[in-house]
């Protein structure tokens, strides 16, 4: 629901990093816990980029699965459905989420002039 405001933040970072060079692809890592819909993000990006030097550039969204590490046995559990934090190794419930909360701009591909 907040994809448009995310895209405005992304464009600010891209503008700074690209230093005026034309951008073709913006690479993002988005954790599955971030409540971001990749398709909506890409549509919002088209709106934000329109009429700016970023027009025509696209977002490459790499979705990062949610994984949690058990504090008791160290087992890493991948969580695919509801966020129920139960260790698949020992049924413990003291888990730390290790991946799935990313919201990173990792890299830019410049457009070939």
């Amino acid at each position: 629901m907040h994809e448009l405001s995310l895209c405005m933040r992304i464009s600010g970072i891209v503008d700074r990093a690209a230093e005026g060079r034309p951008v073709a692809v913006v690479h993002l890592q988005v954790g599955q816990l971030r409540q971001v819909v990749p398709e909506t993000l890409r549509s919002c990006w088209r709106l934000v980029a329109e009429g700016t030097p970023l027009a025509g550039s696209v977002l490459d969204v790499e979705s990062v699965p949610v994984a949690a590490t058990c504090r008791d046995c160290g087992h890493v559990t991948t969580i695919e459905q509801a966020l129920i934090l139960v260790c698949a190794g020992c049924d413990g419930t003291a888990l730390d989420i290790t991946t799935g909360e990313e919201l990173l701009l990792t890299a830019l591909d410049l457009a070939e002039v």
């Binding site: 995310l6 992304i10 970072i13 701009l105 990792t106 890299a107 591909d109 410049l110 070939e112």
Partner: peptide, 24 residues
């Protein structure tokens, strides 16, 4: 420049690695 002497080079990539919420 634009001349790659016939080599099929990929696009230039800039590593950024910045959290989108950093400014917030």
């Amino acid at each position: 420049g634009g001349d790659h002497s016939g080599y099929a080079t990929g696009p230039e990539r800039i590593a950024v690695l910045e959290r989108i919420f950093d400014e917030n």
